[in-house]
Structures are given as C-alpha cells and as structure tokens.
C-alpha cells in the first residue's frame, strides 16, 4: 500500500503531480505512432486555492485532469494526494479497488451539461448515485440531495424531475451538486462554464466561488477562456503541446508574461473595448499548433515563436525557476514581453 507519511509533502499542498506523462498509441497511415499528450508535467495544488490550467485544444490540459483523478493510467510520473486524515497517498500506484475510497475526495465537473447527465435518471438519482455507490442509505441520500440542491440554488422539490426540464445553466448546477455529494476536497472543473451564455456563466462562476468558501474546496480549473481564468485562479499553468511552458501567480503572469506563448495567448484575446483595436493591434501568432505525434525539435513552440533562435530548434528548454515562477524558455530573462494593460 502506497500510503506515505504526512511529511511526504509540505502541509499546505493538497495534490502534488511529479513528472506526469501520458502517451497514447495511435494508428497512422504507416503503422503505429506515439502521441505524447502529456509530457513531464509537475506542479503542486495548494489547499483552498484555485489552480488554473490554460491552453488551446490539444495542449493536454484535460488529460492532466483525467490523470490526476486516475481516469487514465499514467505512462510515467506520480500523483500524491493528501487524504482527509492527513496521510499522503501515491495514487498512481493504486489499483482500482484501493482507489475507490479515495475517489470520494476528488470529483469532476464536465463541460457539456447535456451529455454529462443521464437523461433517464431523476435529479435525486443523479446526485445520489455517488452516495449509494459509497454505501449511504436511502433516507441519508434523500436528505443530502435536498440539501445539495439548496446549496446550488435549485429547489429541493425538483429532486423528482429529469434533466430535460432544466436550462443549460441549471443542468451545470446539477453537475456541481453531484460533484459535491461526497464532500470532496478537490474538484476538477473541465471547461465548466464554456458552453454557457455570458450571463449564466457569471452566475455559475459566482456559485463556484461561494461553494469554495463554504466547503473549503480546492479547484483545478481548466479553461481556454483567459478572462475567466484570470478572474477565478490564484495560480495558473500555461500548457503547450503537452508541456507546461509557464507557471506562477495569475496576476504576475498576466501583468508580465515570461514565455512568448503566454504573451501570444494574452494578445489574441479579443477585448470588449473598441478603442483598443484602433490603438493598434497586437501581433497575431502565425501558423497552427503542431501535431503531438510529430512535435518540432527543441522547444515545441519555436516554429511559431517570433523570438526563436537556432538554439530553440536544437535544444529543449528546461522548466526553470525565474523570478518566482517557472518558465520553459531559453531567453526568459532577456525578453521583455507584453502583458495585459490594466
């Protein structure tokens, strides 16, 4: 059993991810190839914080969450998780049976509130299912479901209804109630508001923040919406082609990015401010995200990077500590990159 002593990681850390990798075998025209979805990813998530994972499609951010929650088996690396009794478990080493009691402590909220709820189950069964799996009685479940519905701003009388009777925003709340059912410590929210309309997304973001305060939750918040991630996250990691390129305090990274990809991402966000477009537009990043089956040599970002040199094509930069954050760029100290103006 891979239970480690409480001292295995600092007291404020809830999850530690070390050298996480996930490679998928894919069929190509000429046989098998290896897709490196996640490559050597390491970070800590501290208790009570919101940790944002940012990146474009194919960057590996969802795969990281799924690996952390052990929905996939790891190719390499370790995931350490602090259990509610204070001990630390290396969940990468556990089999499915040993994993089951630990699953109570980590839950997930999905992007699409239509496909993530079984249309033939009532809210009571949807929200109560995780509890019945973990051996709660009917009466316990009924009481808890009513309580959870109230928590997410839905009427307890709705317990007997089916998901189709609810709007997208309400369905997302049902998904949140289900994630809360077992009083988890960590909730991974994968694009949890991306499918919602602006006014409804704002309501649900506020709800998530209220619940965080109320229940001492820690969030892993995955999104491609940089405005949203800036609003909700304490710290962020920016991913590109399966690797972390920059990691640090949200405010500092947004004010002064140190990796050229972070700069490009921030510059690409269209801002709800018509004056900004007339005051001259940011440089638009050229080209497209390369294939993870056949990634570029050296720094994966070098073919699109406006600052790239020969060294970048030859040598993979290490993720290293620069000015209180981690950056994967040979020239992090020399470049003066542009952040977001306040």
């Amino acid at each position: 059993m891979s239970v480690l002593p409480a001292e295995a990681m600092p007291a404020e850390v809830l999850v530690r991810v070390e050298g996480l990798s996930k490679h998928f075998g894919v069929k190509t025209g000429s046989g098998q190839a290896l897709l490196r979805a996640v490559d050597d990813v390491s970070f800590d998530i501290r208790k009570g914080e919101t940790f944002g994972l940012v990146g474009e499609s194919g960057s590996g951010k969802s795969t990281v969450a799924r690996l952390m929650l052990r929905a996939y088996r790891l190719t390499a690396g370790r995931v350490l998780f602090r259990l509610s009794d204070g001990t630390v478990a290396d969940i990468s080493a556990l089999d499915d049976r040993a994993m089951r009691p630990i699953r109570r402590e980590m839950q997930m909220i999905f992007q699409d509130p239509y496909s993530s709820l079984n249309p033939r189950m009532t809210l009571r069964d949807l929200i109560g299912e995780p509890m019945s799996v973990h051996g709660a009685t009917r009466a316990e479940i009924d009481a808890r479901v009513a309580e959870l519905l109230a928590c997410v701003g839905l009427r307890p009388e709705y317990a007997g209804r089916y998901p189709h009777a609810f709007s997208g925003g309400q369905r997302q709340r049902i998904g949140i109630a289900r994630a809360l059912a077992l009083s988890p410590a960590l909730i991974a929210a994968d694009e949890a508001v991306s499918a919602l309309d602006v006014s409804v997304a704002a309501q649900n973001i506020n709800l998530l923040q209220d619940l965080q305060e109320q229940f001492d939750l820690t969030y892993l918040f995955i999104t491609h919406d940089l405005g949203m991630v800036e609003h909700i996250s304490n710290r962020i990691a920016v991913m590109y082609l399966g690797r972390i390129v920059e990691l640090g305090e949200t405010e500092e990274i947004f004010a002064r990015p140190m990796h050229p990809y972070t700069e490009a991402l921030l510059g690409a966000v269209p801002q709800p401010d018509p004056r900004k477009r007339r005051s001259g537009r940011r440089q638009v990043l050229k080209g497209e995200v390369p294939s993870a089956v056949n990634p570029p040599s050296g720094c994966a970002f070098h073919p699109r990077c406006p600052y790239a040199t020969e060294r970048c094509a030859a040598e993979l930069p290490a993720l290293r500590e620069v000015g209180g954050r981690q950056v994967r760029c040979h020239f992090a100290e020399e470049l003066a990159l542009q952040g977001v103006e306040a």
Partner: peptide
C-alpha cells in the same frame, strides 16, 4: 458588466443577470 475582462482589477464577484432567458 458580466464579462470578466483581462487586466481588470480582481473583483470578488462578477455582476450577473438574475434568472435565465
């Protein structure tokens, strides 16, 4: 007012429109 803007001073809560469409 309900869109989080880049570079905006971090506010505790987003403004919302109550209810849904």
């Amino acid at each position: 007012q309900s869109i989080p803007r880049l570079g905006q001073a971090r506010v505790r809560r987003l403004k919302t429109i109550r209810g849904s469409v």
